[in-house]
Amino acid sequence: MANMAQAIRMALHYGEKNLGVTDIFGEDVGAPLGGAFTVTQGLETAWNSPLDERGIVSTAIGLGLAGDRCVAEIQFCDYIFNTIDLLKIAGNTLWCSNGQYNMPIVVMTPVGAGIRGSVYHSHSFDAWAARLPGWKVVMPSTPLDAYGLMISAIKDPNPVLFLKPKSLLRVRGEELLPGEPAEKELKSMIDAPIGDRSKWKARWPKLGEFEIPIGKGKIVHEGSDVTVVSYGRTLPLCVKAAQELATQGRSVEVIDLRSIYPYDWQMIRESVQKTGRVLFVNEDTEVTNFGEHLAYRVTQELFYEIHARPRVLAGKNLPGIGLHPNLEEASVPHYEDIVHELREVLEEVP
């Protein structure tokens, strides 16, 4: 099975072949490296840009104004912060022009902890991104979702921020992509060789179109006692926690939100109405966290239908994530935290 890096690469290839993508660019995105996480290896329209995040985002905006389709990369979301006003502009161009200029661009960036990345390779961006009106924001947790969300992002006439959970980029999926060959064959076809790559060219499988609609979540584990809503790195941990609690007779429903904005409120609402309890899990810092918005909404709209306080489990409100595993684990949610929080929500007596 493809891993998420390969899946995104194949979606980008599909985009340049079938959806009019003209430029896939950013720092070390082109040959020979093909991206810090190999996501852009072998792509025809991939090129290396100057080391200039503001230049990358503003060039994407200009390409969008000209009607070309691009996917721009910020190498780590930790370095996207000096582009925040440009992200605002991308999000407000259609609105400020009273509907006259679309901004059909995709910006992708790896996010989150889990690779011992220390202070500047472990940031999250979902809470910040949720405060960029005009953007759509997605974060997959499986290769197939990554493939389908990238295709939807490219097709979308609005700016889409595609957050790549970096600790999941090497994890293989459990579902085949449309047109995906066997694992070994895939590797020999689309992974650049170690060493000299000057003569290497990717051989692409015949891929099929597959879209995950932006704004639609997925129930990845059905349950009836409590709902947990997550996305990205923490999502598989929530599934594992649900499996563990199932052995103890507790039934946990896990929603992979997949889209942070617009988000699938109908799915959350129906699930919480069924379970009466909810936990939101993500790893961005906890103060003014996106999960807080969802918890607030549950409180406002479902107050009389729930049996426990809605909770948010998120990253500690710290200026950084320390390198030592003890520091990292104490800073962002990990498996035991999720199990613990779920037990608390389940055991709460109104």
Binding site: S58, T59, A60, I61, G62, L63, G64, A66, I89
Partner: peptide, 8 residues
């Protein structure tokens, strides 16, 4: 910066 994109 945005001018780079249209020029490209």
């Amino acid at each position: 910066g945005m001018a780079i994109g249209t020029a490209l």
